[in-house]
Nucleic acid binder design. Structure first.
Lengths: 194, 194, 194, 194
DNA sequence: TATGAATGAGAATTCATTCAT
DNA sequence: CATGAATGAATTCTCATTCAT
């Protein structure tokens, strides 16, 4: 209570948190790496070691392994959503769609996690982003179709299958060159040419 | 290994072996099902139960779980290789290639296993089929390019990434309708149109 | 199928099971010891080691730790129930009740486990024995009261608290002499004298 | 330990210490609550939260969890000792003994902690109170026997077993009504009637 | 040869305790 | 001094693999 009197305001919450935030980020970064390399079945010990922290720290930041996976997905899908929002205002929907996918691809294995695992638990937030994302992509896709830039017989779901699959395959191949990711995204988009 | 030494000649007959072969096939069939349903992380107990045999029998036929996975892949890739041999004699290489891929896709998650696991162990046989397969597909792909049915800037490796990724994505989506697999293969092939 | 032809009937199921049953009993015996010595918080590894088996064997026989605890309780309460059935036919209900309690006490920490833990999970069987036991003890208690051998202001529940508590206290004291357990049971019963 | 060395004289004053004492008491109060509710296996985080302090504060005041438990016991047994000192001057030793026990019981789970845990570490202070307490109770018990109010064949140790066991059983039953604790103490004391 | 019991390494998760802020 | 983030040992439980029957 009166103990805080002699503390400068700066000490009240800043420095402590800095470490925490850094660790959370380190864990997420490590987890992304490890998951891409070994798949979801990778162990927390491995992730913790890669992040240079103890197992406990992982669990302080993420309630469970599922939670960690969900957090990563939310982050990535969130970025993709932002891109989509911008893309929906662009004049050329076909090009915009391609750009969004490329950005997501380069950001790496985008939606490449086995959805089953993640969906099993009730991750409200994750579900929300997923739905918003799908809705937005649907709109963009429809616009591109209307503009004659995407074949009329295709669906967004098919796009997701192709794109998701390619991301996963690339992630596992170990090829991390943005060029390769970009190139394969081009191929995917070309599959949907009229 | 040396276990066969103490077998009496009488035991070496036909019927005994027939059972053995039947069991091997039952296990492979069960494993394919279970792997598609649950992914590679499915347990041996589940597979054994589904095959109607004991766990021990699985291990009599396959040295390890990796071995079982490899055996399945060898089998599948082997069939694909046979298709390829036939395809290479066909007049229309573009159409032949598409047919080979469709057949493989419909045979289900074809090469949809995480290669990492399989490659970790040195499965000579698997490597061999893979290489032969790649070589043959390369030839067919080149012919199709020469015939103007495949874009000249593409490579077989890219085809493998697209096709492999899509198979995996579909396998995980739980969609087992041949129609869907066929449709997505079409999309993949279209991506390589000139 | 035809493989069993050359096996003698004796080999078909007898010896295998013998081991299994023995192990189950070894685990229960070890668990009783360890739980009495260290309380419920004792670890499965400790129990397995004491039983001379691996952890896995414990889990083959009991779905979970709670299950193991429940099994022990069911066993003990089951014996007590048998005693009670006999006791209810005896001419002197007061003496019969005392004998039942003594037998249970000597069999050691009888109902001395924290009921909370056990009750939390839904162990149908355990609940059933408990209820039957309580019902029977209630009857015997009432008869003893009618016969003027137990004070009319007391209830069975109070008896359970005293008896259960004493068992637990003795178990923890490490005193394993039947004499001590018998003596303390006498004291408990005397508390319910008119 | 040597941490006090660098304290400036100014910091040594009264108010600071008052806070310290208040925290110690808050922790003890919280711990008593939590231990009664959840048993010894309750976690320090829970206790700290209930006390409204950080975990670190708990450890500043008590070297370890065992230490905290011991401190609580010392406190309680200390109160019981005070009661005993008064009781030894009373004219009716039987009644005095009953009153002391009742007071201790109502103060709740008195000596209801698993003694094993506490005794494992060498808590000199706890041992001391225990011994003094036992000695005093022994005297009172002997007087009550001499006065013909307690059966001559019983011992104080037996009284401790009954009383301790009942306290534990009641604590675990979750019954916190002083009436129940009082009633059961009566039963215990009645067990020692001549 | 088939079976499934046994084994034990390893995974997820919790929590007492330490220590930087 | 207080705080809570970090640590890692320990716990429960799973599963690939071995081996007695």
């Amino acid at each position: 209570m009166s103990r805080t009197v002699d503390r400068s305001p700066i000490e009240l919450g800043g420095p402590r948190r800095a470490d925490g935030i850094r660790n959370r980020e380190k864990v997420i970064a490590a987890a992304e790496q490890v998951f891409v390399e070994q798949g979801i079945e990778a162990g927390i010990p491995e992730i913790a070691a890669r992040a240079g922290v103890g197992k406990g720290t992982v669990y302080r930041n993420f309630e469970s392994k599922d939670d960690l996976v969900a957090a990563i997905l939310v982050l990535r899908l969130g970025k993709m959503e932002e891109d989509l929002i911008v893309a929906l205002d662009q004049p050329d929907p076909g090009r915009a769609m391609r750009d969004v996918l490329k950005a997501a691809a380069v950001r790496s294995s985008a939606i490449g996690f086995p959805p089953g695992i993640v969906l099993s638990g009730q991750h409200a937030e994750l579900e929300a982003v997923k739905n918003r994302l799908k809705e937005r992509m649907k709109t963009l896709f429809a616009e591109a179709q209307k503009a004659g830039e995407v074949r009329p017989d295709a669906t967004v779901d098919e796009l997701f299958v192709l794109f998701g699959g390619v991301c996963r395959a690339l992630a596992e191949s170990g090829d991390t060159s943005p060029k390769a990711w970009s190139r394969h995204t081009d191929l995917v988009v070309d599959a949907f040419r009229p």
